[in-house]
Amino acid sequence: MKLTLHIWRQTGNKDKGTFETHHLDDLAPDMSVPEMLDHLNIQIIKSGGDPVAFESDCREGICGQCGFVINGHIHSPESHTTTCQTHLRSFKDGETLHIEPFRAKAFPIKKDLMIDRSAFDRIIESGGYIGVNTGQANEANSTLINHDLAEKAFDAAACIGCGACVATCKNASAMLFTSAKVNHLSMLPQGAPEAAQRVKNMIVQMDAEGFGSCTFTGACEVVCPQSISVFNITEMNGRWLWG
């Protein structure tokens, strides 16, 4: 199969960046998008050019490392799917694809499709944990957690930290990411003692990182590969207001 790519090239954060066009033949519908870029890069390298910088690691949709915008779709034209789990059979033979990085003020572009998502790490650092040292834990079954609550906590905990929620939001808000972690920990009995500080500290950090505010459009949930629910945001707001 054949595709034409308009792919974002930007040498560094200060560079303005632009689209560069490449024609690819010999593609297979079973290829994933990163595999297509591997193929493109070999072609570029062999003709003496500078390969496209892009990141991906697990290529299974779990590490959160990949993520580009393809024809305006965050991650993928498929719903709830990471870029690495998107295969060329999702496109038509002969189609033209625009591929560019996730864009948000808090995620500066490093090079081409690579972005800096360390703001997420700093949000976690500010309170996204349960303050237990190694060795302090009590017997696992001495804390009973109802099945439904455990499942609900898992739903929130499943976030892969990819940043798609931020990239799709017109305000570049990180509320879905932040609320998922706040709720995962605070709804569990183990995380309850720190719940009040946690939500406060994480929201303060989120704002300090330059993420926008949430106007509750629900766009984030639509692109989230783990289908994290927007109700997490409502729930977090509740925790913030009423402790």
């Binding site: 349960i130 237990v132 302090q136 834990a137 009590n138 017997e139 696992a140 183990q190």
Partner: peptide, 22 residues
């Protein structure tokens, strides 16, 4: 055994029975 205790204390949402046990 100690590892399961540690992970639960950190908030790892392991699968649970309806009774609340792991």
């Amino acid at each position: 055994m100690e590892l399961i205790d540690q992970a639960v204390a950190q908030g790892v949402p392991f699968a649970r029975e309806y009774s609340g046990y792991l």
